[in-house]
Write a protein that binds this DNA or RNA. Structure first.
Lengths: 126, 126
DNA sequence: CGGTATCCGCTTGGATACTG
DNA sequence: CAGTATCCAAGCGGATACCG
């Protein structure tokens, strides 16, 4: 991603715009809270409070903030059930599901290399 | 990842420890600078300054900080050539290469859905 | 229950300067 | 060139309170 240089023609300007957009999207999505939320939503639709319990350590504020961002980018769909008390559910869209696939890869990677990493840390720290 | 509850037996304590380690690793790695660095190093070995140019927007400080962290976790290998001026090169280890595969997936995803996302954003903002 | 708003501490991260 | 250290401002993010 990125790394290219454009020299000024109209088509290049378009490419540059797409590039900066890609960077923006990448920056939105590539943070631990967003990735963890997507990972948990991949298993099934969840309510706000369920999500709050699943993603442990996340604050009320960070959860809403990230959910809005994911909704804005069309990765998550928000459905409000007009009941009392309110019931709000979050589901992955197709785009979200697709991204989830790659996050699964990251999780699998973590478990696969956890031993290597733990050892490497000890060597480095000592 | 995570989301499980352990009830207190010795084996459970081990699982809980592995779990929190996994979380720690995930938090280290799941940030945009780390992911971008790994992505660029996947193409080829790079010097500090090359990396600084490739990952545009990153500051000197953030680059060193993330490189140390990646080295500590054994994802990146650092080789110092004792010349004047010094020449320091960074390469992905096998673990790093493996992770790079999944990051490639994220980049591909970005480009595939960039249209959807752009449109979704307009709808949301307007 | 879920969301928004406010306050505010404190971490993050940029700028700068200095070493080998 | 690469790395470390210091300083300091901006903004992240937690806590709290209040509304629909």
């Amino acid at each position: 991603m990125g790394g290219k240089r454009y020299s000024g023609s109209p088509e290049d300007a378009d490419l540059a715009r797409a590039d900066s957009l890609a960077r923006e999207i990448f920056s939105d999505v590539a943070n631990k809270w967003a990735l963890l939320i997507i990972e948990f939503l991949g298993e099934r639709t969840l309510r706000f409070s369920e999500l709050r319990n699943a993603v442990e350590g996340i604050s009320h504020k960070m959860l809403t903030q990230n959910l809005r961002m994911l909704e804005r980018n069309g990765l998550v769909e928000r459905t409000v059930h007009p009941t009392v008390p309110p019931r709000v559910e979050y589901t992955l869209t197709e785009a979200g599901q697709a991204l989830r696939g790659t996050i699964d890869g990251m999780c699998a990677w973590t478990h696969q290399y956890i031993g290597h990493i733990d050892e490497s840390r000890r060597r480095f720290d000592g």
